[in-house]
């Protein structure tokens, strides 16, 4: 019962977070200098009357609260409105963009987490100078080299100088770059945690019982590190968003990031709102899942 309540509490907090983010985004979209009509007006040379008419048609002359209420009622029903610039349902645009981003982020996440885990495990099992240097290197790389710089370097080296990869379209380069970046962010802490976990008192007890090394690691060390792995995964997911944003722009991938950025430049708020809502809801959902998983692994938290 207590366990169910605490999971519900976590979910509820996540929902409140989502609601606040959506409200904040809505507000920011409306206070931003220059609206979509201005942008269209500049491009299409509309008269002031035409612009006013357009604002009226789009409901932009209504009070903010009314507009927001309108949007929410539709959004809850799954209708995010139509793009003002492209006059297409936002849902359709999301439907084409999301798979691209999903592929990119899931692959990057898998690669990054695997790389970090492999490096950290190797360094714990066989402490050596080589692994330390590798771990430090990956860590410093992720801090010092922003993903878009790594992308530019990759294009320059592999695609132009060596002629290996097609400059655009391929997922391999962005996945490797984001994955490496993610791995660098967590690998050091992961290694420290693993190092500490093998010296935990209950792990010593397990060894004192004479259990085999694999049994000690699987049943006694691993549960102790699950909490950290989950927390670090949550951290990585946040940085995935930023990473995929720049990678999509640089490698011209038609994903959620490109869509959001184009919408921002074009002041196309139905699209901005829908994209940010989607991103924040999925982040909160993922974090909640991590939280629940952690509670399942560690009986003390329930």
């Amino acid at each position: 019962m207590a366990r169910v309540l605490s999971v519900l509490g976590t979910l509820l907090r996540g929902l409140v977070q989502c609601a606040c983010i959506v409200m904040l985004t809505f507000l920011l979209c409306r206070v931003m200098p220059g609206d979509v009509v201005d942008v269209l007006g500049l491009e299409g040379g509309l008269t002031a009357e035409q612009q006013a008419q357009m604002r009226h048609d789009l409901g932009l002359d209504q009070p903010l609260a009314v507009q927001f209420g309108d949007w929410v009622t539709h959004a809850v029903a799954g209708d995010f409105g139509r793009s003002i610039r492209f006059d297409r349902p936002v849902m359709d645009m999301l439907a084409t963009a999301v798979p691209v981003t999903l592929r990119l982020t899931v692959l990057s996440f898998a690669f990054g987490l695997t790389l970090a885990l492999v490096l950290a495990l190797a360094a714990t099992a066989r402490p050596s100078r080589l692994f330390d240097v590798l771990i430090d290197g990956v860590n410093i790389w992720s801090i010092a080299v922003p993903t878009f710089c790594a992308g530019v370097i990759a294009i320059l080296v592999f695609s132009i100088w060596l002629g290996w990869l097609p400059v655009i379209g391929g997922l391999l380069a962005p996945v490797l770059i984001i994955g490496l970046d993610n791995a660098g962010q967590i690998v050091k802490q992961l290694r420290e945690e693993l190092k500490e976990a093998v010296t935990l008192p209950h792990v010593r007890t397990a060894r004192a019982k004479g259990l085999s090394p694999w049994r000690v690691s699987v049943f006694h060390v691993m549960p102790a590190t699950m909490g950290v792995v989950l927390a670090l995964s949550g951290l990585v997911l946040g940085s995935l968003v930023a990473g995929s944003l720049t990678m999509e722009v640089l490698f011209a991938l038609p994903g959620l990031g490109s869509l959001t950025l184009n919408a921002i430049h074009g002041r196309d708020y139905p699209v901005i709102l829908a994209a940010v809502t989607l991103i924040s809801v999925s982040l909160v959902l993922i974090n909640t899942t991590m939280d629940v998983l952690h509670r399942l692994v560690d009986p003390r938290l329930a």
Binding site: I21, L24, L28, C29, M32, I264, L283
Partner: peptide, 21 residues
């Protein structure tokens, strides 16, 4: 602070610039 923490820093900065100009 928790309310804005759910958004990754870069995205938050991006949105703020959208609003602030």
């Amino acid at each position: 602070i928790d309310l804005i923490r759910a958004l990754p820093g870069t995205l938050l900065a991006l949105l703020l610039i959208v609003g602030l100009g």
